[in-house]
Design a protein around this nucleic acid. Structure first.
Lengths: 206, 206
DNA sequence: GGGTGGTTTAACCAAACGATTAACTTCCTT
DNA sequence: AAGGAAGTTAATCGTTTGGTTAAACCACCC
């Protein structure tokens, strides 16, 4: 970060990239506009010219992150595919995505915790009722057919999310706890793609 | 929080309690000393009288939280007990503790993410090498005896932590996603005490 | 060259913020 | 009662912060 962003990008894009970098680490309250401007290699007044104020800039970054966290999963789970395939798809998606943006989970969860009321309207995009009815039906059929144990859809979703997302939220702690280099963590992330479905399917086995 | 803390507590205790409330939600950068003072029902100058500055007050709160997150788990895992018992103990400990302080995980992870360098010295208290050697040996014995599958200790620890901790980090999202009341979430937390060991042990089954 | 629209800059502003200060209050001991 | 120590307060301070402003700059067109 000694030298800022390439100059061939538009100013708006450079601001967005810089804002993401700073907001992901410091959150809304901790991030400084001067810092974002420095990161983008621009004059601070441009932040206001392009994004009006801090909150609107943050909103832009947050929305994009939030869209990566839950809607993706609900979309995959809503597909007409065997359960095992969906679990694998989710594992692949999250492990790949989060390897590139490991700061995302804590960024989202932190903001949600600091301002829970702001969350309510955003949950609309998650389309939970459709997910729940679809998944509930699929689980019921699988259980009836004796292919899986009886499990509450909530528990399944939570387990899946936890196993996929939490290792990245814990990355600074994990890497120090296990003395992992960046390459070690990459290898770990790769192994998670298989471990997550194994854990989930083992639990589902009747 | 309309009316602040009971006046029968010492000023220092009231400050600590208020600081915990505010720091857990807003983090170090987002919390305001004036807000903490208001929460404690005192004059702002007292914060400096008792805790010198913002950082030192925060440090006090953070240390306590961090001690709840990892050292507890390493202590349990280091015991000479059957694996299944240890898993159950961990599940019980975390689910009970986090039901009372659901904001703790995100509070810790957020600070760790905003200042990763500050984490390194604190990992010393985790005593990871003792944990790893002890757990590795136990897992090797269990595998050799054919009682569990071959599993890397890192994967086991991560799965366990993820399944125990993440639901609480996700509480605002979970409660809205599944339309849970506070009582619903309490029931959910209670069920997690059993689900976590079930998931873990199912995965370990050879 | 002059005009237009868009972008960028340095300087400035008012409020917020963490921290300090001097005065006051309470309690205890002599 | 006086003095000392610890605790508390309201006012003040210096710095930081998000945001604004006026001017400058740039590219393009007639």
């Amino acid at each position: 970060m000694a030298q800022s962003l390439p100059k061939d990008q538009s100013t708006e894009q450079r601001i967005l990239h810089a804002a993401k970098t700073v907001f992901y680490r410091k959150g809304l309250g901790g991030a400084r506009m001067e810092e974002i401007a420095r990161e983008a290699g621009i004059n601070k007044a441009l932040l206001h010219y392009y994004f009006r104020n801090k909150e609107q800039l943050f909103e832009r970054i947050f929305l994009e992150a939030f869209e990566q966290l839950l809607p993706q999963m609900t979309a995959i789970l809503a597909q007409d595919l065997p359960l095992e395939q969906k679990v694998q798809q989710i594992s692949d998606f999250y492990n790949e995505m989060l390897l590139e943006t490991p700061l995302l989970p804590v960024f989202v969860l932190n903001y949600v915790q600091s301002d829970p009321e702001a969350l309510t309207k955003r949950m609309i995009s998650v389309n939970a009722s459709k997910l729940m009815s679809h998944l509930t039906e699929q689980l019921a059929q699988e259980t009836k057919a004796g292919r899986i144990r009886d499990v509450a859809p909530q528990q399944l979703i939570i387990n899946l999310l936890a196993l996929c997302v939490f290792p990245y939220a814990m990355k600074p702690i994990v890497t120090r706890l296990f003395h992992m280099s960046e390459d070690d963590f990459r290898g770990f992330s790769e192994s998670r793609k298989q471990v997550v479905p194994e854990v989930i399917m083992a639990y589902l086995k009747p």
